[in-house]
């Protein structure tokens, strides 16, 4: 069998070789070398660039129409609304530039395709023109920088709420633990040397403030309309806490405590009623039904967004946003660190 393949391969090679020989012979007999670009080459390329430009823009708008609703739904946090507004303003500028410059490029590529009887204009520079296209981008960028930094400073500065909900997200390979500060609303300190099966996030048992801290897994709850101040820690490698629906992200760095603060504005239940969310969930469930998987409901999610090992793709936690009363009731049902430890 293998012999047959080898023979076939050799025959193929010989055939190709003969074919190439014929091609080369005819090529070398021609007067004009083949590599020289002809008017019809220019015609073809110029037209194809123009056509490509049209199809390319078509593809762009097709994606917007077809996939626009699949992007993240409206922001579920207060600062996220600002981010979305800024994002849209920037998109307006950026997409204009994208369309205009690409449009001109493909148009010029067609319009100035070479012809035998033509000669290019000898134009080497134009100080005024160059000034204009240095200054205009500079102005647009000034706008982008000013608004970007204004929002950045607002988002990253310490919040004004003197009594925010405090939550620690603790990352390890490959899951999350959320810690609430408990009654005293203060986190006890931690010490990685004390990590053990029972003390998975390494709380320092000598610190009495740890006793009322509450540790939860799989899902954590936050109240609507309250400032939530997150701090982030990691046990082993760098992870990143991404909460896309809240437009929130921060790395979890071993040996360091990082922080981020936001105020949720839409409860999970209300978000499930958002038309865009409904449409997506319908699409998803239709696909799942075809595969025989169970339907899902919309939930806010915490994902890991910094490669952290084999199961990086599966480091998730559910986030529930609810009224403050529901949140308090849920929290009251959770066991404190002391209760768990003394069991």
């Amino acid at each position: 069998m293998i012999l047959l393949y080898i023979v076939a391969f050799i025959l193929l090679c010989i055939a190709c070789n003969q074919l190439f020989k014929v091609f080369e012979l005819s090529r070398d007999l021609r007067g004009e070398p083949l590599y020289k670009v002809t008017d019809s080459d220019n015609q073809f390329s110029g037209r194809t660039f123009l056509l490509f430009g049209i199809v390319f823009f078509g593809f762009f708008f097709w994606q917007l129409i077809e996939w626009g609703h699949k992007l993240l739904p409206k922001s579920a946090s207060e600062h996220g609304e600002k981010i979305d507004a800024l994002m849209n303003a920037n998109w307006a500028i950026v997409i204009t530039v994208f369309l205009v410059v690409n449009g001109l490029l493909f148009f010029f590529a067609w319009k100035y395709r070479g012809r035998k009887d033509h000669k290019a204009s000898y134009i080497s520079h134009n100080n005024k023109l160059e000034m204009i296209w240095t200054v205009i981008p500079a102005i647009a960028l000034a706008f982008i920088i000013i608004f970007g930094l204004k929002y950045w400073n607002e988002i990253m500065k310490k919040g004004s709420d003197p009594n925010p909900v405090k939550i620690e997200l603790y990352a390890k390979q490959f899951d999350w633990t959320a810690r609430y500060a408990g009654k005293d609303n203060e986190f006890g300190i931690d010490n990685y040397l004390q990590i053990s099966g029972a003390n998975s996030v390494g709380l320092d048992t000598n610190d009495a403030r740890c006793n009322d801290d509450i540790l939860v897994k799989n899902e954590f709850h936050i109240p609507i309309g309250r400032d939530v101040e997150f701090q982030f820690r990691s046990r082993d490698v760098i992870h990143s806490a991404l909460m896309p629906h809240f437009r929130a992200q921060m790395n979890c760095v071993p040996g360091q405590v990082t922080s981020f603060r936001f105020k949720p504005t839409i409860t999970t239940v209300d978000m499930r009623k958002d038309p865009q969310v409904i449409r997506n969930i319908e699409e998803i469930n239709a696909l799942r039904a075809k595969r025989g998987d169970d339907p899902i409901e919309f939930d806010y999610l915490l994902l890991c967004n910094k490669v952290c090992g084999a199961s990086h793709y599966n480091m998730q936690m559910k986030i529930v946003v609810e009224s403050e009363a529901d949140y308090n009731a849920w929290l009251a049902k959770q066991k404190t660190f002391k209760q768990v430890a003394s069991k």
Partner: peptide, 23 residues
């Protein structure tokens, strides 16, 4: 972005009123 934009525009103007040979 500014020097980058300058490059892009300069490429465009180089093509402008050229006699493009499509190798």
């Amino acid at each position: 972005a500014i020097p980058s934009a300058v490059k892009a525009f300069n490429y465009l103007t180089t093509l402008w009123r050229g006699n493009i040979q499509y190798t």
